[in-house]
């Protein structure tokens, strides 16, 4: 399965009436995860988060595609 770059957030059991809501739920949680951390701590949290999510995805071809996109134009 190729990398999914379409909007894909949802929470089981939750009903959304507005298309922007699930993405905004995720984004708020992401920013909250970093609240009150130093820059160094935040960098560590991000690294750990990537490792956890990468293992969950598992498919190395998908991860390769994501890594390529992430590097482009940085």
């Amino acid at each position: 399965m190729p990398l999914n770059t379409q909007p894909n957030f949802s929470e089981p059991g939750k009903r959304y009436f507005r298309a922007f809501s699930p993405g905004d739920d995720f984004y708020e949680m992401l920013i909250d995860t970093h609240r009150d951390l130093s820059d160094e701590q935040s960098a560590m949290v991000n690294a750990r988060l990537i490792l956890l999510l990468a293992n969950h995805i598992g498919d190395i071809s998908v991860l390769r595609e994501a890594m390529q996109i992430a590097r482009e134009g940085v």
Binding site: T5, Q6, P7, F20, D24, I31, D39, S42
Partner: peptide
Amino acid sequence: PVSKTFRNAVLGLAEHYAFARAL
């Protein structure tokens, strides 16, 4: 700074990727 990095990452990806536009 980390919120700003995420914000600018979303804006940078938004031009080409639909999921980022939604964010």
